[in-house]
């Protein structure tokens, strides 16, 4: 199992390159304003090649304008050779079909994962549930919307062989089904998206004027949100509210046994991982055998 590092801007990406990680990812799963400029993308691909690390490009949900920016980037990437592109929008998947060197990788936004809900335990602990109903709910919260063979076949028909997933131990047993159906799995450490918007909560809170003029405060700021009445706690980073899931070495072993191919470590203000040293320290902590 390899460990890859995901960065949403070139500075972090360069830090990732100098760490012990085996793969590097550039881009944003969540915000099209964070798509790199073509020259940055070109530089990232070349740097990854020089460092001998596998490169993956990450794309978010997109507007019409974002689609046009992506079109330009995909043409550039296609010229650079074979690359995996994580898509989080059906429009991006539609575009990817035009570029023979680019391979679609299913992003987290494409999946509905009931276990992402902060209310799972509340549902399962209801006393009025029959045994049958409770079993049904357990199956629901263990499953993802990819745990249906025709859905996988549909995606595979578009060339998708890889998929991003969350660190949600409740869903780990269902991952075997995905592997058996020919998917190569990548699991994100730490951050489980609980809600996501195009009306960026951070930008609105900080009174940014418009997406086009956004100063991108999310590159170095994040917020903790607490609602005691609801018992909710989220980490707000840009336009996403995450739940934090602390990974531990035993579960990493479990994922390895399940034939998960890749763990993904994200560099951002919520994880606090912003340097090669911190990446290496996290790797050492989680993957003792990799030392």
């Amino acid at each position: 199992m390899k460990l890859s590092v995901q960065a949403d801007h070139l500075k972090s990406f360069k830090e990732a390159l100098s760490s012990r990680c085996q793969g590097v990812r550039l881009g944003s799963e969540f915000c099209e304003q964070l798509l790199p400029r073509p020259c940055e993308l070109e530089e990232a691909v070349e740097l990854a090649q020089q460092a001998g690390k596998a490169f993956t490009y990450i794309t978010p949900r997109l507007s019409n304008a974002g689609i046009e920016r992506l079109r330009e980037q995909l043409a550039l990437l296609n010229e650079k050779g074979e690359t995996w592109v994580v898509f989080n929008d059906l429009g991006a998947l539609n575009l990817l079909g035009h570029y023979p060197n680019l391979h679609p990788h299913i992003g987290r936004h494409m999946l509905l994962v009931p276990a992402r809900s902060p209310w799972v335990e509340q549902h399962l602990q209801r006393e009025d549930l029959s045994v049958r109903r409770r079993d049904w709910l357990r199956a629901l919260f263990a499953s993802t919307s990819l745990n249906y063979r025709p859905t996988i076949e549909l995606y595979r028909g578009y060339g998708c062989q890889r998929v991003d997933l969350d660190w949600l131990p409740r869903t780990f047993p269902s991952l075997t089904f995905l592997v058996e159906n020919g998917l190569r799995l990548s699991v994100h450490l730490h951050l489980v998206p609980a809600t996501f918007t195009r009306k960026c909560h951070t930008a609105r809170f900080l009174r940014e004027e418009s997406p086009e003029k956004c100063s991108k405060p999310c590159l170095d700021r994040a917020f903790l949100l607490r609602n005691e009445a609801f018992g909710l706690e989220f980490y707000l980073h840009g336009n996403v509210a995450f739940r934090l899931a602390e990974p531990h070495p035993e579960a990493v072993k479990e994922l390895e046994n399940l034939r998960v191919a890749e763990l993904v470590l994200t560099m951002n203000p919520v994880t606090g991982i912003d340097s090669a040293e911190k990446i290496d320290a996290t790797m050492s902590k989680l993957m003792a055998d990799e030392r």
């Binding site: 700021r221 917020f223 607490r226 005691e228 009445a229 609801f230 989220f234 707000l236």
Partner: peptide, 27 residues
């Protein structure tokens, strides 16, 4: 719904100081 109710907002880093209380998740 939870998104329409106020959250206590803390800036991460620097001791996680409380910034404000606002229905920050709703548009």
């Amino acid at each position: 719904t939870p998104c329409r109710t106020p959250f206590d907002v803390y800036e991460i880093g620097d001791g996680e100081r409380k910034v404000t209380r606002a229905p920050i998740l709703d548009g």
